[in-house]
Design a protein around this nucleic acid. Structure first.
Lengths: 146, 146
DNA sequence: TAACAATGGTTGACTTTGTCAACCATTTGC
DNA sequence: GCAAATGGTTGACAAAGTCAACCATTGTTA
């Protein structure tokens, strides 16, 4: 009685995953949404990081990114630094509070992956990663063509 | 320069997939959104189908389902039939117009899967499906526990 | 069988996510 | 030096999702 369509089953997986992460991160009582969390993680991983970097990584409108970044600044999790190469742009960096949050998020992520991948071998996992990155690339070629 | 986190790469895949489907279905000019399309597909596959069936399949609020169903009825793609077993409930059925739409959607889905899975063997695909259904189940156990 | 809990569904109010268009400031390319 | 492109902001809005209150019917059980 479960799935049927291969597309739907992928949607289900990701929906469940987002649910799980949301439930966990909500308990940190940070007053931010799942998208904010994704943005902090991106800022943490990519240094230096500008708003455009975030927008292009997420594949989303820069308007949305502006607003997500603004509330993260209001909440004191990140701050803006002048971008020495471009006066229109800023570098976004986690504050100390932000770094503390990131640690907790990484922990939650790890535990969620643990739960999700229970019973799977590391060979299966790398195979899964490999196939899904091929799929992602088929859908949204990442400039490695001509 | 692409991913980093295994979670993010899954999000990317599904985001790209949704994008692709949305782009294609938009060109049918049906005046409905991606979620409406998913609902029609569910109604098509599960007969008989009630609002609750849809809500539980999608894992979403019944309020949302009520509204999605309403606009599908307004647009003339589905209709309500009395549920002989329960006077509170209705069976939802595609109309002739709905059936025509479903055919086009199935076509788009197939082409999208084709694109997405290009260069992958059918063994890889079944393996991918197998692993992702294990993961989905780990996150959201489907009543097969105790 | 009357009372009560549970279920299917609807509505209102609201948050979150996402897009589009217009706009400003700066940078880049000719 | 000028036009086009780029980084970013703002306003307005559509789409997606949730919560709580509610109604009608169904199921349970004292």
């Amino acid at each position: 009685m479960s799935d049927q369509s291969s597309l739907e089953s992928l949607f289900h997986l990701v929906h469940g995953l987002k649910r799980q992460l949301h439930q966990q991160t909500e308990q940190l009582n940070l007053g931010i949404t799942p998208m904010h969390i994704r943005v902090i993680k991106i800022i943490h991983r990519k240094k230096p990081c500008t708003a455009i970097d975030i927008a292009s990584f997420l594949g989303r409108d820069k308007a949305q990114v502006t607003r997500l970044v603004n509330t993260l600044i209001e909440r004191g999790f990140i701050s803006r630094m002048p971008n020495p190469n471009d006066k229109r742009s800023h570098y976004l960096c986690p504050t100390d509070a932000g770094i503390a949050v990131i640690k907790e998020i990484i922990d939650i992520d790890a535990k969620t992956v643990q739960t999700m991948t229970e019973g799977l071998t590391s060979e299966e996992l790398t195979e899964f990663q490999r196939i899904s990155s091929i799929m992602a690339n088929n859908l949204h070629p990442t400039s490695d063509s001509h």
